[in-house]
Amino acid sequence: MNALEFVTAIKREVIDNGMQGYENTLGNETAATDPLWIATRKLYSSLSSSDQSTLLQFVRLVQVDTLSHIFGILDGSSYLNEMRESFQLISESDGETLNGDLQDLLLEMEE
């Protein structure tokens, strides 16, 4: 697996599939027990379809920003609590180093 394949797979799983899950959960009247989900679903259903779309776009933005920050930490362009720790993410299948440009690859995909 190379870096592009890794970022593509992570983006698909975390962001794309995650967004589908949020949309399904917010737009579905299935029983929810978590108070935050109940309140969020009530808020979501009170919005116009345009505002619902805006809210979902914002959720996606938060997901992209969060994943971008994690990739930045792995790449070495961001730090954990100002700790300047270097990381190396290696593909077990071929020993290829994946990190270095993960954040850039993700942000290019999102443009």
Rank of each mutant, 00 (worst) to 15 (best):
M1K: 08
M1H: 11
M1R: 01
A3Q: 04
E5G: 00
E5H: 01
E5F: 01
E5P: 03
F6S: 00
V7E: 00
V7S: 05
T8L: 02
A9D: 02
A9C: 12
I10S: 05
K11T: 07
K11V: 02
K11P: 01
R12K: 11
E13V: 07
V14R: 01
N17C: 07
N17T: 00
G18H: 00
M19P: 00
M19V: 06
Q20D: 14
Y22V: 04
Y22S: 08
E23I: 07
N24A: 06
N24C: 11
T25Y: 01
T25A: 10
L26W: 03
L26V: 04
L26N: 00
G27K: 03
G27L: 05
E29K: 08
E29H: 10
T33H: 15
T33K: 14
D34L: 09
P35E: 02
L36Y: 10
L36R: 09
L36C: 12
W37C: 06
A39D: 09
T40H: 11
R41A: 12
R41G: 08
K42Q: 13
Y44A: 10
S45Y: 01
S45F: 09
S45M: 01
S46L: 09
S46V: 09
L47H: 10
S48M: 12
S48K: 12
S48N: 13
L55W: 05
L55Y: 05
L56C: 08
Q57Y: 11
Q57C: 13
Q57I: 03
Q57A: 14
V59E: 02
R60H: 12
V62H: 06
V62Q: 00
Q63C: 04
V64G: 03
V64S: 00
D65I: 03
T66A: 15
T66F: 15
S68A: 14
I70D: 02
F71M: 01
I73T: 00
I73P: 05
I73A: 04
L74Y: 10
D75I: 02
G76D: 06
S77Q: 06
S78A: 12
S78Q: 12
S78C: 14
Y79W: 13
Y79D: 11
L80D: 15
L80S: 15
L80Y: 15
E82S: 15
R84L: 13
E85S: 15
S86I: 01
S86V: 09
Q88R: 13
L89W: 05
L89M: 13
L89S: 07
I90W: 08
E92G: 07
S93Y: 14
D94Q: 12
T97V: 13
N99A: 10
N99C: 11
L102A: 00
D104T: 03
D104I: 04
D104S: 04
L106Q: 01
L106K: 04
L106A: 05
E108Y: 01
M109T: 08
M109V: 09
M109G: 11
